[in-house]
Design a protein around this nucleic acid. Structure first.
Lengths: 253, 253
DNA sequence: GGACGACTTGCAAGAAAATGCAAGATCACG
DNA sequence: CGTGATCTTGCATTTTCTTGCAAGTCGTCC
């Protein structure tokens, strides 16, 4: 196992469990604690973890509580499959929007290295991850950074979207229902999402099946505005049929 | 078998398995490890693989950029002291700009947790680091993200700065000379830096003493526009005196 | 057909990285 | 404020990486 692989796995576990323990990691990877500590230092310098006495915590779990972090420990397999399926919707050489969120982050990570793409994001961690890829042109939307979701919101993020025409927007959502459409708890994020969809020729929503049972405060799109919803095979076929009837194609990865 | 074919096959295997091993590849293709290493270098230049000690991993499998982590190694003590000294220049309750750069990043990390501050940044990693701090209001400047420095540049980052009035701008620089002022290699970054200084009531430059021997392509400020330069005790006192004569106060941490 | 040049490959030596070990510093908790 | 756990740092070892150079391969041009 290479050092980098071990670090990836440490990061994965940290995000899944909310925290990792130096001694436990050392045992499980069969290396000394010094090695684990060095890995944690690397991950901390990369800005994805924060070291604490005895272990480390992913940055997104700091400050405000389990907002982004707990979302990431559930449905991991499904999210991975959804992200992989979404790759089929990438344009050949064009521009895409990737919304903030745990499923869309997996999509961002899986972007191929040999296709020229312009990627518009509103999450600083995504920008950091993608900017070093030689084949990608990364555009970050500015604005106030919400601590809870690590996404930019407000006016400065909205205005540039008015002047953009991108090929595909890959969106996350908190809730998805036939009646209420796509919803999210925060009105500011809702505004950004709406603007993203407005700037895109085509909109693909990435949502595991648990998202279809919830409705949240702010609606950012009706189903008619969506071209495709990619979900997992846990979605009730009846609901899928209702959604398809309302407009978007449903792909069950 | 041509080199090109071998490289394609290496890439195929890397994507299929998630990793490749130098020694194994050398055995299987019946060539030396040097040849395999050269192939991996080619593939890495193409942006599709990332080399690691012992082998390589396809970029789409990496969730963060290990290279970022190891960059900042020179003058670490000095930079740390400079960052600490810069804390004295923070406003009580107000707004600051923190430029992208390794010294300014240390300042960002050292920001106190008990003071309400609005922080404007143009580096996604800084935004990620600071956004989870409860006492900080973080504003990210949007724009194209440069892969080399992980800073946003271009129009979208410049425009919002026109409408901002912040208390203090903490700036990094590549070169600092009495004659040529503050310089940086990239004109796009230069434009952002100039706009940052323009938006600030007061400008503090953080620069270790090695910065005082270089001059780069694009000047973003003359010394007269700078209020304070914080450096380390390695700076020649004669140069410090010249700088002070030109305008800015010089603090040697 | 043969000679030239561009490119690829292998070899060897020195450089660099990853890791473990050990000693001393620091931290958390009672 | 002491004690055990955790953390940092320097060093040694092993493995891996880089680089210069020589030999080999392939295509091209005369």
């Amino acid at each position: 196992m290479y050092a980098e692989e071990r670090q990836q796995e440490i990061l994965r576990r940290a995000r899944a469990a909310g925290r990792v323990d130096v001694v436990k990691l050392a045992e499980e990877f069969a290396v000394t604690t010094e090695t684990i500590r060095r890995d944690l230092t690397v991950l901390e310098r990369a800005g994805v973890l924060r070291r604490v006495h005895g272990g480390a915590i992913p940055v997104e779990r700091l400050g405000f509580e389990p907002a982004l972090a707990t979302r990431d420990e559930v449905m991991t397999d499904e999210k991975e499959r959804i992200a992989k399926a979404a790759l089929a919707e990438l344009p050949e050489d064009g521009s895409i929007i990737i919304d903030a969120g745990s499923t869309t982050r997996r999509l961002a990570r899986a972007l191929p290295g040999d296709r020229e793409l312009t990627v518009i994001v509103n999450a600083p961690p995504l920008a950091t991850m993608l900017a070093t890829r030689a084949n990608l042109n990364v555009i970050m939307l500015g604005g106030r950074v919400r601590g809870r979701t690590l996404a930019t919101v407000d006016d400065w993020a909205l205005r540039p979207l008015e002047d953009l025409n991108v090929d595909v927007a890959f969106m996350g959502t908190n809730g998805c229902s036939v009646d209420k459409g796509l919803t999210t708890p925060d009105p500011a994020e809702s505004a950004i999402k709406r603007a993203m969809i407005g700037a895109a020729e085509r909109t693909v929503v990435l949502a595991d099946h648990t998202k279809f049972s919830g409705v949240y405060l702010a609606r950012f799109a009706a189903l008619t505005e969506i071209d495709m919803i990619i979900t997992d095979d846990g979605l009730d076929p009846a609901i899928a049929a209702d959604i398809t009837a309302a407009g978007p194609e449903v792909v069950r990865a």
